[in-house]
Computed example of a mutant assay.
Amino acid sequence: MRFVAPLRESLDPTVFRRPPLDAWSEFSDLLQAPAWPTIEQIGALRERVENAAKAIMPQFVEQTPGLLRDGLHYEKRIVECGQIATRTGNWHDLFNALVWLRHPAIKSALNARQIAEIAVVGAKRRTRAQCALTHFDEAGVIVRIEDPALLALWDTHDWHGLFWRERAAWSDGRIRLDLFGHALLEHALRPGQLLVGKALAIAPCADLPARLARAIRAGDALNDPQELRPLPLSDIPGWHEGNAEETFYATAPCFRARRAGRSYPLPFGAGESRNAPACAGSSGPS
Rank of each mutant, 00 (worst) to 15 (best):
A5H: 05
E9S: 13
D12M: 12
V15P: 04
F16D: 03
R17M: 07
P20D: 07
A23V: 01
W24I: 04
E26H: 13
E26R: 15
S28C: 05
L31I: 03
L31M: 07
P37Y: 04
E40C: 04
Q41W: 02
G43D: 09
A44K: 14
V49C: 09
P58M: 15
Q59Y: 02
V61E: 11
V61A: 11
P65W: 13
G71Q: 11
K76R: 14
K76I: 00
T88P: 01
L94T: 02
F95K: 07
F95V: 02
N96L: 02
P104R: 03
S108H: 11
R113M: 05
Q114N: 08
A116C: 03
A119Q: 13
V121W: 07
G122V: 11
G122M: 06
R125C: 08
R126L: 09
T127L: 13
R128H: 10
A129M: 08
A132F: 09
L133H: 07
L133Y: 08
D137R: 14
G140F: 03
G140V: 04
I142Y: 09
R144F: 10
E146H: 12
E146L: 10
D147L: 11
A149L: 09
T156D: 14
D158G: 02
W164C: 02
R165G: 01
E166C: 12
R167A: 03
S171V: 02
I175H: 07
L177I: 02
L179D: 08
L185H: 11
E186L: 03
E186C: 06
A199R: 13
A199G: 12
A201G: 10
P209R: 08
I216T: 06
G219M: 08
A221W: 06
N223C: 06
E227S: 06
L231Y: 11
S234Y: 01
W239T: 01
H240C: 00
N243V: 00
A244H: 02
T247S: 10
A250C: 00
P253L: 01
P253R: 04
F255G: 00
R256V: 00
R256G: 00
A257Q: 07
R258V: 00
P267W: 08
P267K: 11
F268V: 01
G269D: 04
G269L: 10
G271T: 02
G271C: 09
S273V: 03
S283R: 15
